[in-house]
Structures are given as C-alpha cells and as structure tokens.
Design a protein around this nucleic acid. Structure first.
Lengths: 303, 303
DNA sequence: CATGTTCTTTGACTTTAGTCAAAGAACATG
DNA sequence: CATGTTCTTTGACTAAAGTCAAAGAACATG
C-alpha cells in the first residue's frame, strides 16, 4: 500500500487498544501462574503438550527461540518431575523427541480449565447481546490484524515456496474437480519472471499461505493465474491483496488489461473478481479447467 | 449476571483472540526493547516520564507494586545514567521525588516513536476502508472489555467510596444546572441499607467509577436515585448495569415497581430508561431537580 | 572412510528480578 | 518530648533466565 500515510489517530487507536489489552486482559492468559512453576518451564510444557505425538528438541528450540543448553536443562527438569518423556528420534539418533506424560497432560488441562474460568468470569458480567457483540468485534479485529501481518512478496517462480504453493493449488483442484488437474498446466518459472511476468507469495509468520502468478498473453495484455490461498488463511481478504499486487505488477509491465479464467463452481472467487472491477468476457483462450473468463482495464502507468 | 453459563464457544473465542493478540501484536508494545535496558528499568522510566512534574517513590511503589529496596536501587541506577533526577519532597522530608531529565524524556519519546512506526507499518498493509473497520472493531472490543471488567458491588451508603461518588454526583449537578444542587437532598446512609434500600458502587481497577441508590418510597414501591457514572467511564453501558443491579435489589426487597425522576436536559438518560422498560408517569413526588418521572413494573420475586 | 556438519549435553558463567530485614531519618501524636 | 509510624536506603540473599564454549555422538557427503 503506502500510497498515503496512516493517520496518526489510527496509530494511536491501535496502540491504545494494545496497551489496554495486554495490561488488563492479557493477564488472563497467564494460566502459567498459579502452579508454582517458573514461567520458562511452564511455557515449554505447554508447547510440548500441544503435540501429543512428540516434538524434537530442535523444533522446540527454533519455535521458542531458546538456547540449546537452556532448553536441554529445562526438559531435563520437566522429565525429573514426571511431566514429559524423552526418547530418541526413530530415524536420526542425534535428535531427541519429547512428549507429554499423562501427568504433564493433566497439568496443562488443569491450567487451561483455570484460564477458561477466568475468561468466563469476565464474559459473565456482560449481557448476552453484548457478549455476542464483543465476540464479533474480536473476530473482526483478529481477521484484520492477521491480514495486516501478512506480506505479499515478489519471489522467483522457481523458489521452493512458490513451488510449494503451486503444488498445494494443483492438489486442491485435483481433489475438487472430477476432471482432475494436470500439473503441466502450471506456469513455468520463465513465464513469470522479469519483464514477462511476476510471481507473488504471501507469507504469514514466515510460512507461505498464498500465491498468484502474472504472465504475458500478448503485448499489453497480462493474464492472472493460480491465485490460491491456504485454507487456514481464507476469509481474511488475502486474495484481494494478491490480486492487487498482480495488477500493480501488470501496470508496471505496461499492461493495459489483465484477463483470467475461473471455474463456474467457484462462486466466491467470481464475486470477488466482480467486486474488484472485473467484467465477464467470452473465452479468450482454451484452458481445460476454466469455464468463465474475466478481464479488467488497468489504469495507465503512473505519470 | 450469572443467570445462565457463558457458552464455551464464546470463552474459546476470547482466549483465541487473547492468545493471538498477546503473541503477535502485543509485541508491538515492547518498545521497552531495542534500547539495551532491563525491562524493570524501562518500565520504571516510562512511569516516571508520564509525570513531568515529578512523582514520589511512594506512589511509584504502590503503582508498580515494587519492593522498596528494589525500587530504590533502580531509581539510583536511572539517576546514574542521567535519565531521572531525585529531590526531596517540599512538605515531607521522608518522601523523595523523582522526575525525568531532558535525556530521560528524549529516550521515552524515541521509544514511543518506534512503537508508533511499528504500529503504522502494520496498519499500512490494510486498505483505508479495512483500517477503519479494524479501528472500529478495536474500539468496540475495548469498550465492552472495560465494561466487563467493572464490578457493581453492594456497599454501605456511608462508606468513603459511596460518599465520594455522591459528592462527585452532587458537584456535577451543581455545576450543570443553574439552580445548583443542595447536598441535603442526597440519600442518607440509613435510607439505603438493609431492608429499606441499597447502595451500589461500580469499581474499575479498584477505583469507584459509578453509583446508584435504591430507597423505599412506600411498601412495594422503590425509588431509584443518584445513578451516576464517572465521566471517564461513560458510553460503556455502565448505567444500565447499575440500573439492573438496583432493580434486582428492589425485587429482592419485595418491590413490584420502581420509580425515578430525571431532568429534561438529560436526554440520554431518558432514552436509556425508556430502553430499559421504564414508562413516563406523572410527578409522584416533588423533588426540586426533577421534571420527568418514570416507573417500571418489576417481575415477581423468583419462585 | 575422512571430514565437516548437526544436535545435544555439560560446565561455568552473568544478568535480571526480586525478597527480607535492619537501620536511620523525618514526621505525627498524645 | 517520648513514642510509634512512615519512608527510604543498604546489605545480604535467592531464584530465574539466559549466554557461551567445549565436547561427544550421529549423520551427510565427496
């Protein structure tokens, strides 16, 4: 974005909320307290208990950003208390796996119960209608904050993240449509690099959660393809952001119009395209999987 | 409230939001970091910088809940770094006053600038319309969370908190209406205790922020008086909660109807009474300051 | 199979955060 | 003005949190 600066009042509003929330309400999530356990140990135990199948120390280390020695000692302490069990990794004997014991699971469950009770106590003060309003406002805020925290980056079409997204896209279409999906229909890295096209990957907390490709159909005409959003990142409005990035890239590449095709059953996608200024047109190309075609006139390049 | 339990889904929603927010967004408010300063010192410096006129160590201690020795050492450290200045209290030589130096103020300002930049960076990723939506959702959430965190407690009408609220109420009316307000018109402690009546004070973080009184007009008929909310706690919906508490108390005291009077210029209050089931009636008593009268039928006592 | 890399453990630290009690100065009160 | 109280400082601790480097076992690779 960055076309015009964010109003100071909005910045202040976010910080105000932030301060209020972390100080007053965030304390609810201190289920860590209560049990007379150091915070570090409690946090670690929670992280371990979230994966009943076991985690490697290595993953814990990178997840929690802990020093190897520090982590080693803490897990040992938890083991001595009978809360976790350590074992060797089946395939790699350098790695050690940790999993919660029943006792460890009980402690975590108990803490969660207490945190739930605290949260319920807070909500209980509100009349049902207001409670519903609060829950809705929080859902909206979380949705928008997630969207804001996602970045849409131009990447090489051959990069692992790009390929991973395209694979997920292909697998999803393949599973969804009876006719299946042939991977050879995916764009190649050469088509979406440099002056010819572009490839964007959306990242949430370092993980790729969406993509979109732009390639040149003919001079002045771009084609948008493979707009995909990870199931867990849907309904945030991410597809629109990817679309906007692709259109901007098309404009920068002297396109005056972009086209795309989509499938009749994807009614949501069609609604989004229409809302974004696309109009339906006759078939411009004979893709196997599309049966509806759209195009949008782009504004001229910036003066 | 507590008439029926809070749905588990709403509890989960609050905790989900809480977790997401503190983990992902709350980090924004870690302006403490960046400067290579221990958290305790940074927190203390911020607290001191908020009061350019100076604070006593005593107040800081109670505000931050710190040990006297610990606080003494930390202020000394800040003084050694040239960030705060210590002096004696003009009236009481036991107390020591702390105030920020220009250097201390600069550091705090700089940290705030960084936190603003982080927040702006996050908001910048959203289109203006969505940003406005986010700000509104946060405002709604904060309003309702504040309301939820306020308790409405039955207290003795003679308690200092009760008298403080009544004084504020009287002062406000006195300032607001040309005819002034005569304190002798306030309810006496005896009228609002035991079987005769009730007095409620609303507390937010330990501070009284509202009140309301119930007294007996005649057998079966209660009168609600002095419903007041602190200016900083208005527009949260607190008056309705106080009203609900008073009505419940009236029901418990075998009242079948409650009455109240209000002033024509308080249009918001009148709207609230109507929305809460009150209907306008002719004057039932000759108070000096009221010119509109309302009553509400209460449900019979619980079976 | 030699060599470099990855992963964990261990020992030896440091800093932060916080507690407790004693002592002294200043004030408040009868 | 003696006595108790309040407030701050200081000394002497402790526990938690974290850092750094060395060492050894297991794996990966040419």
């Amino acid at each position: 974005m960055s076309t015009q600066p964010v109003p100071a009042e909005q910045v202040a509003a976010l910080r105000r909320f932030n301060r209020y929330f972390t100080r007053r309400i965030g304390a609810l999530e201190d289920h860590y307290l209560g049990q007379d356990r150091p915070l570090g140990e409690a946090r670690l135990l929670f992280e371990i208990a979230e994966r009943p199948g076991g985690v490697s120390l290595r993953e814990l280390r990178s997840r929690l950003g802990l020093d190897a020695g520090y982590l080693s000692r803490m897990t040992k302490a938890l083991e001595a208390q009978g809360l976790v069990r350590l074992s060797a990794h089946p395939d790699d004997n350098r790695l050690r796996m940790v999993e919660p014991t029943p006792a460890g699971r009980v402690e975590v469950t108990e803490q969660n119960r207490r945190a739930d009770a605290l949260a319920a106590g807070l909500l209980d003060a509100l009349a049902p209608g207001r409670r519903a309003q609060l829950v809705e406002a929080m859902a909206t805020a979380q949705r928008l904050l997630r969207l804001a925290a996602i970045t849409v980056d131009l990447v090489d079409g051959a990069s692992p993240d790009a390929r991973a997204c395209l694979d997920a896209y292909a697998a999803e279409i393949d599973a969804r449509f009876p006719e299946g999906f042939d991977k050879s229909d995916l764009v190649g890295p050469a088509e979406v690099s440099g002056e010819a096209g572009a490839f964007f990957v959306a990242y949430e907390e370092g993980r790729p959660v969406g993509c979109g490709a732009l390639r040149r159909l003919e001079p002045g005409v771009g084609e948008i393809r493979h707009v995909w959003v990870h199931p867990e990142a849907r309904r945030l409005g991410l597809a629109r952001r990817i679309l906007a990035a692709l259109e901007e890239a098309a404009t920068a590449r002297d396109c005056t119009v972009v086209r795309l095709d989509t499938h009749a059953s994807l009614t949501e996608a069609q609604a989004m395209y229409r809302a974004s200024g696309y109009t339906e047109i006759p078939a411009y190309v004979d893709h196997v999987y599309g049966d509806h075609w759209f195009e949008k006139q782009l504004p001229g390049p910036a003066v």
